[in-house]
Amino acid sequence: MLTISQDLVDRIVAHARADHPDEACGVIAGPVGSDRPERFIPMENAERSPTFYRFDSMEQLRVWREMDDRDETPVVIYHSHTATEAYPSRTDISYASEPGAHYVLVSTREEDKVEFRSYRILDGVVTEEEITIVQ
């Protein structure tokens, strides 16, 4: 189960809306072992694409080092789908590489409705999980 604050949900959705029709992506870091997403880090989509995303490699190094220094892990890795449902695509599954992360998917295909869902992706297996939103 993912427990996340309403503020962080709003920030992910705002990022996804702002980058639409391209996919938006980012990380929410949290203390190692806590499973608590706390620090919002929007990332650049180096692909600038409506169908693909990839963290910029230099930005990723900087952010991962910073998390290391602060004893944090990427608790949430999020990205948006801009024309399809908020469910991991085949490429999302094959490139998923953080076994401890909650993979959050947002769909911006409809202007007035938000789809916000969370998954574990481990060894090619997708498991959707419940989301508890707290204030």
Partner: peptide
């Protein structure tokens, strides 16, 4: 990023640090 250096041919030496990170990517 070694892609901007020489890829697998990139010279390395004692004292260097090599970091491996899986790309975060998808569709």
């Amino acid at each position: 990023d070694v892609r901007f250096l020489g890829g697998l041919e990139t010279p390395v030496a004692d004292g260097d640090t090599v970091t491996v990170l899986p790309a975060v990517a998808g569709g």
